[in-house]
């Protein structure tokens, strides 16, 4: 995963669509395997057959639904980036809500509003967690000021002759008097 950066904008749609399809197909396979196993008649061979049948029948469809979601989301995201001229969490939240709304368009206005709300909240949560993680990760690499560096070195080796005396522990410094 090292140096994995997102693709630039038009290609990002393909990437997101593929990522969503893979997620849906693999996750759908797992869930359908369990579901087919439970719904099949008794007997291990029946159960495994039922599991396989359920995977074959449903996993690609679930993957396809995910892919439509991901592709539409990314398309709206790229459009918003172009229109607004910036990339921020609001793009993702707005496109999540819009995607939910558009995909529920055939079920009526109420369903559209509900789906849009769910999409927006979901994406807001995802963005929030992402921001939180990047804050935590970035704090590890926070640049230290020279003061802090010297403090750290003093803690590691208090008798380091290369370090100047601590100015906070009093103004009496041998160098000043020299």
């Amino acid at each position: 995963m090292e140096e994995y950066a997102r693709e630039p904008c038009p290609w990002r749609i393909v990437d997101d669509c593929g990522g969503a399809f893979a997620m849906g197909a693999i996750g759908g396979s797992l869930f359908q395997a369990i579901k087919g196993f439970r719904n099949a008649p008794a007997g291990m061979s029946h159960r495994f057959t039922g599991s396989l049948t359920a995977i074959k029948a449903r996993a690609p469809v679930i993957g396809g639904q995910f892919a439509v979601w991901g592709g539409l989301f990314s398309t709206i995201d790229c459009t918003l980036i172009k229109i607004r001229g910036k990339e921020d969490p609001w793009n993702a939240i707005i496109s999540g809500a819009a995607t939910g709304g558009i995909l529920a368009a055939r079920s009526g206005v109420g369903a559209m509003a509900g789906s849009a709300l769910i999409g927006g909240v979901l994406l807001a949560m995802i963005e929030g967690v992402g921001i939180m993680f990047s804050r935590l990760a970035a704090d590890q690499f926070r640049p230290l000021s020279p003061d802090e560096q010297i403090q750290m070195m003093r803690q590691q080796d208090p008798n380091n002759p290369n370090l100047f005396p601590n100015p906070l522990n009093g103004s009496e410094s041998s160098y000043q008097n020299a």
């Binding site: 749609i13 393909v14 990437d15 997101d16 669509c17 593929g18 990522g19 399809f21 592709g71």
Partner: peptide, 10 residues
């Protein structure tokens, strides 16, 4: 991988 899958789907 994701690009390949996405192009396949599209």
């Amino acid at each position: 991988a994701f690009g390949t899958i996405g192009s396949g789907v599209m």
